[in-house]
């Protein structure tokens, strides 16, 4: 359905308040975890699509309250596939080199134990314009 006014657009924006704050600061009124997987040309070339599928499968199997979202390239091509884990109440953390075979480890350590996976930790080195 069409959005016909600035007010209607802003109302629509509001529906996603939690999603935005979770991705930006790690705050949310829900306790649902979100995992962002970089799925762009560079990611595909090193199997990010397999990572994505494996993540969805593992999360379902282990009954974790989390959703996996495909996103574009965050720019760290040298560490693809990259994955950002947004756990409510914690700052979002970026991980690199998360090929399919690292998915179990990532889910077990980061999503379940909620610890940082030092080896694959990727320092986020940018600030962005917030509109």
């Amino acid at each position: 359905m069409a959005i016909k006014s600035l007010d209607a657009l802003k109302a629509k924006q509001k529906e996603f308040k939690d999603q935005v704050s979770l991705r930006n600061e790690g705050t949310s009124s829900s306790d649902r975890i979100e995992v962002l997987v970089g799925l762009a040309t560079c990611g595909f070339a090193v199997g990010a699509d397999d990572t994505f599928i494996a993540l969805e499968k593992k999360i379902k199997e282990d009954n974790i309250n989390a959703k996996v979202t495909p996103v574009g390239c965050i720019g760290y091509c040298h560490r693809e596939p990259t994955v950002q884990v947004n756990i409510p109440g914690q700052p979002p953390i970026l991980y690199g080199d998360i090929t399919e075979d690292k998915v179990t480890l990532l889910v077990d350590v980061v999503l379940k134990e909620q610890k940082i996976l030092e080896e694959f930790y990727l320092e986020k080195t940018f600030d962005k314009a917030v509109l």
């Binding site: 991705r23 495909p70 996103v71 574009g72 940018f126 600030d127």
Partner: peptide, 15 residues
């Protein structure tokens, strides 16, 4: 950070 993203502001952060 040295990086400031305007054109790339949403890349890797939205579906």
């Amino acid at each position: 950070t040295l990086q400031y993203r305007i054109a790339l502001r949403n890349c890797g952060l939205i579906n």
